[in-house]
Design a protein around this nucleic acid. Structure first.
Lengths: 228, 228
DNA sequence: ATCAAAAGTTAAGAATTCCTTAAGAAATTC
DNA sequence: GAATTTCTTAAGGAATTCTTAACTTTTGAT
């Protein structure tokens, strides 16, 4: 997910960038409204964080301009906490606002909330949430896995790994791939963490873990869930 | 789709029949509980509309009898609107109820809603207002919750949380999900609020809160109400 | 074919994270 | 202002995750 942070205060923009990147988002920056609009043409942006007070083109004007062409979720940052500003911001097309000084955790929560809402609308109930291969079924809504109809309990990490592999049965994921997707951070030195988890998953979903039917290894490459 | 209308009042039964046939359903009639049971043997019935007050065998007795053998969705018609009757009907195995005098459109909406539950089709025109799982019943119209037929008092927040979970039994909601839906704002500080409410709810609806039958935790993910 | 290196598997315990629970403060309702 | 409800805090317990290290299989170089 790509987020555009638009603030002339370099310090604040950088701080936000770090917090968001820490959450796994890709962050682009813009120092004013004009830059922001330019960035939108260059990158696919999924959410905008926009400061109100900026030189050249302020946040209000920029928001209006952006809303003429895009429906990207937009969170407004305002130094003042007057209701006046908030109302103005929301009327103009912002989806939410946060007042400075703000709690980074709050900003992140609101970012997630907006992205959730936005992506939920696009795929309302349409998104697939049941993945099957052979007698192995994963229901992502119920967080439920069954093998031959028998429910199997997986821990959160185990679940995430299996879901990743099952969302694309047959596709091989390297250990680095898995680490990045599941932990949301580049695999710096994942000893054999992933392998251990794989073992635990096999223990639970395979009849005979030594001759796995579903969760196969591809030597020197990674792991996959067989497409059956 | 075949619907059985069971009411000794011929006028009402005929009126219902016409409305339902107008919607494309095939309607069978029965004047009392005994007739209803006889009809069930002869035709494949997909939904039952059952009046409470009837000669020979009343609706309550008939419902109990029917539930011994069938899981057909059943909507109860009651002349009285007292809470007592509603609770009784639901505990006995009815899936929904409508009080006389009723709006035909409401009845049809509830019929569709029930059929949808069992066939998993269509769109949401009428939101369901009775949610059941095991012996736990939530009636959103009366804001009433019963466990084993015993009404339990929940505070507003507790009620909202339980309703959210019961509207989709089996589905897992993260703490953030719950916070957002119940408080209508994203959660950002690592609080414990939801967990405390969950505890309080368990205290009230569970026999043994330490081994909850209904309100389960899914480790590292969130909470759900078991689909029973 | 044989051996060493590389890659994968497995087990066990320490470290960490997450959930539960109780008690009291703060806020709200009556 | 008393009662009820909601929120915060913190300790304790339970479950999960990670690390370590020995072991097995595969690969490929000799």
């Amino acid at each position: 997910m790509n987020i555009l942070v638009c603030d002339d205060d370099k310090e604040i923009a950088d701080a936000i960038k770090i917090y968001l990147e820490n959450e796994g988002y890709t962050v682009f920056k813009a120092a004013d409204g004009l830059e922001a609009i330019a960035q939108l043409d260059q990158h696919e942006i999924h959410l905008i964080i926009m400061d109100i007070m900026m030189p050249k083109m302020d946040g209000i004007k920029a928001t209006v301009k952006i809303r003429e062409e895009h429906q990207i979720p937009l969170i407004m940052l305002s130094a003042k906490s007057e209701d006046y500003d908030k109302i103005l911001g929301l009327n103009i097309g912002a989806d939410d606002y946060v007042t400075k000084p703000f709690n980074p955790l709050e900003l992140i929560a609101r970012v997630k909330s907006q992205l959730r809402r936005y992506t939920a609308l696009g795929s309302m109930e349409m998104k697939q949430h049941v993945y099957k291969t052979g007698e192995l079924i994963l229901d992502d809504e119920q967080k439920l896995i069954t093998v031959d109809g028998e429910p199997v309990h997986l821990t959160p990490v185990q679940y995430k790994i299996l879901r990743l592999l099952m969302m694309n049965t047959g596709r091989v994921y390297s250990i680095e791939d898995i680490y990045e997707k599941v932990w949301n951070e580049p695999s710096f030195n994942p000893e054999n963490t992933v392998a251990v988890h794989i073992r635990k998953i096999r223990e639970k979903i395979e009849i005979n873990p030594k001759e796995p039917k579903y969760l196969k290894v591809v030597w020197g490459v990674g792991y996959k869930v067989e497409k059956i």
